[in-house]
Simulated assay, not measured.
Amino acid sequence: METIRIEHRIGVRATAERLWDVLTDFGGWERWNPHEVKVQGALGYGAPISLTERLPDLGERQVQAHLGEWEPNAQLVWVERRGFLFRTLRYYEIEELDRGACIVSHGMVFTGLRAELFHDKHRARIRPAYEAISEKLKQIAEQG
């Protein structure tokens, strides 16, 4: 089975707590994330999460997923089945280097029979979208 990842990392001058507060304010995602909007859900292992994905040139797509792993101030992960033997894992990870200095990584892991095809077809649209998400998340988190 094929596994492929798209990821973006950025340094942010904010505490892990501040970043976690921004990430878990699902109703406020549209302030910093133009590509994953109308987010609804609650923290809880296996809890449902829904959102609208708006990637450039791909239109809008409704996402119905489930939270996987989550750890306060460190990690938020959700998993979506996209058909028979194809799924995506979307994640945000916070690594605190020093108080008020973090690296935020976020991306998507594609797994399944269609993973390589999907990745090859859409990576040129997804990578710039993830860069834009990183920059806006950094801006909002650093504003305090």
Rank of each mutant, 00 (worst) to 15 (best):
R81Q: 10
E96F: 05
Q75C: 14
A65S: 05
E60T: 01
A74W: 03
N73K: 03
W78M: 02
N73G: 00
Y91R: 01
D98C: 07
E93W: 02
Q64F: 13
R81Y: 09
Y92D: 06
R90E: 10
R87W: 15
L55K: 14
E71Y: 01
E93V: 06
R54Q: 10
E53F: 10
E96A: 02
F86T: 11
E69C: 04
D57L: 15
R81K: 11
E69D: 09
V63S: 06
R81V: 11
A74H: 15
E69V: 05
R82Q: 12
A74G: 14
T88D: 04
F86R: 00
G68Q: 03
R87M: 14
R54S: 08
D57H: 11
L97P: 04
G68L: 04
L58T: 07
L97H: 12
G59F: 12
E96T: 03
Q64M: 14
P56L: 08
E95H: 06
Y91V: 03
R54I: 07
E93C: 08
T52Y: 05
L55G: 05
R82Y: 07
V79L: 13
L85C: 05
W70K: 00
L58S: 07
P72R: 02
E96I: 04
V77T: 02
R61I: 01
F84D: 05
I94G: 03
P56D: 04
Q62H: 13
Y92S: 07
G83Y: 08
Q75A: 14
I94E: 09
V63P: 01
L58C: 07
V77C: 01
T52P: 00
L67V: 06
V79Q: 07
L67F: 15
Y92V: 00
R87S: 13
A74V: 05
E53R: 15
L76P: 00
R99P: 00
